[in-house]
Design a binder for these strands. Structure first.
Lengths: 326, 326
DNA sequence: TAAAATCTGTAAAACGTTTTAAAAAATTGT
DNA sequence: ACAATTTTTTAAAACGTTTTACAGATTTTA
């Protein structure tokens, strides 16, 4: 029946004031060694745990960061999340993670929730709409990672992202070097990164002296089962001997189709390396993002903004690592 | 410069008391239509968002559940997390997710944090130590999923879990039916589920009239790179023609070695189905856990306990689905 | 040993909400 | 028109902390 003990209970049991308990437990120098120990003992004995809600309301800080990701089932984002958690924990911050499922409604909900919970700052991998983040966020600091808001939206925030153009250009060039002559591209229809990856693809073709052919440039939604159809279209009808897939999740469906079609000579490239690519019959060329570094950079910058709200926003680009197999 | 608006600001701007604002925004019937609309308008205009910390401290409820998972990179747990988020959202609850990385220290930290944040209930996939959860949790309701505390620890909590014995027995029997005669097992050394899966393995051997051989029963840590060595030991030295792998993560290393060894006739079985198993040269037999149902059950039961703290704890077992390929 | 300085402790205010108790306003019945 | 009732609003208390301003001890200085 006993309710949770409060600081008042501890104070009474230790024969001391609430203020002293507070200070004793937060290792303030303003309490004698002896009393601190007495208070600590009583607190332990009662299993007292300070109510961080009450604390948060008083000190106007929660030591919590919010993180918004569009897809918790996407390996890339779970890895990124883990690195961000680590980096944050290192600085004494906790991370409240919310998954938006690529839905703008859920993203809005998540943002509101985080603001109501008074997170000190927010890390956003955007779901990609025309959201006016500045209006929603108000004075709360934020930072974007991987998925940035569209260019026509004014964002006074930092952005941390991999150089998609450069990386994609490398991958496609590598496919060309491996002998491909006609390389198709299947891109994500929604995400911010798609535009950049398409640019990189074009760059590589240009560097290789190849004229782009819009017939072999397609965009798909990740939940679209006709990715398989598109794959067939490109490799059979259009006779592509190379294929670049611009999205993690889409890659799965492409592989499913390729497995069925059994085309051992197709040159395949994609973004975001997966461990299990090693076990596939097809040697895939990928860009491995420097996820740890991304995570650390994000946290470092966000904390810097917490410390100094005047800090000018900037865009930080990191290089991906190209993985070739065989 | 402007600080976040509080209820007081809204009250002043709307020419009404704070109490009225509170009631207007929470759709209490005790405020006139006209005033509610006026208040709502002012609140919108000021971008007012109630401070849920303050609210939580007053009503002693946060409408938040905590969820503790041992490995955010393990597909099984991310999927489970997602289902739990969905189920919780459906009942108006949010989920605070924390990853323990299989570390008891991190698990303890996560538990404390959640309690301090006053979550209404906690969902635990245990990291597997001798933790006295009842002592830590105090009066906070909790429920275990997948990874339960060891049998020697008294737990007055619900437990939701798949029938590992039965599922493993099915898988191994299937491998036998497919022609395997000597099936080795590589199990996780740490997790709770390992014991049960070993039992299922023995059951299947017994059913098939085969005498177990402890030389081909090994346990590994997921971070242990000599999983590859163990694999070699079993399939080369011990001449196993079948292999059951009791853990998701360990499976990856096994596959790496098998790819190198190139043994097309080996019969392979594992727990937790992965989409990409479809793309592998080896047809793997797996148990697919009813993750959606697990998630829903967990949330339903936990909320039931919130509503009625007297509810007797019980263990709920669900059946896994066996997936055979080719 | 008195004055000054330093430690250690306390009472009360503050944080932003919700809710209780009571007052004010509107509505109803006669 | 006025009492009785019901509806709407408010002032103040409460939630569990931290912190400010102050006071009582203790130590240092001269």
């Amino acid at each position: 029946m006993s309710q949770k003990p409060t600081i008042k209970d501890v104070a009474k049991a230790a024969g001391v004031s609430e203020a002293t308990v507070s200070r004793a437990l937060s290792h303030s120098p303003r309490v004698k060694r002896a009393t601190r120990q007495k208070v600590q003992a009583v607190a332990d004995q009662l299993d007292y745990r300070p109510n961080s809600l009450a604390r948060g309301i008083r000190v106007k800080q929660t030591h919590t960061l919010g993180m918004i990701i569009p897809d918790i089932l996407n390996d890339y984002f779970t890895q990124l999340t883990r690195e961000i958690e680590d980096a944050a924990a290192h600085s004494g911050y906790d991370v409240l993670i919310m998954n938006t499922d690529e839905s703008l409604a859920k993203e809005a909900h998540a943002l509101n929730l985080m603001l109501e919970k008074q997170v000190d700052g927010i890390i956003i991998a955007s779901a990609g709409g025309q959201t006016d983040y500045a209006k929603i966020l108000g004075t709360t600091p934020a930072i974007f990672v991987d998925r940035m808001p569209p260019a026509n939206i004014r964002t006074p925030y930092d952005r941390v992202i991999v150089d998609n153009v450069k990386a994609t250009c490398h991958i496609v060039s590598q496919l060309l070097a491996q002998g491909a002559t006609r390389i198709g591209i299947i891109n994500s229809a929604v995400s911010f990164t798609a535009t950049e990856r398409l640019a990189g693809y074009h760059q590589a073709l240009h560097d290789g002296g190849i004229t782009p052919d819009s017939a072999i440039e397609v965009a798909a939604r990740t939940d679209n089962s006709n990715v398989q159809q598109m794959t067939r279209q490109l490799v059979i009808n259009q006779k592509c001997d190379g294929l670049f897939v611009g999205d993690n999740t889409i890659m799965q469906e492409v592989l499913r189709k390729l497995t069925a079609l059994n085309l051992p000579t197709l040159q395949l490239g994609g973004f975001d390396d997966q461990l299990w690519f090693d076990f596939l019959p097809h040697p895939i060329v990928t860009a491995r993002q420097p996820i740890k570094q991304l995570g650390q950079t994000v946290v470092t910058r966000l904390l810097a903004h917490l410390a100094d709200p005047q800090l000018a926003p900037q865009e930080i680009r990191l290089d991906a690592q190209i993985i070739t197999r065989q």
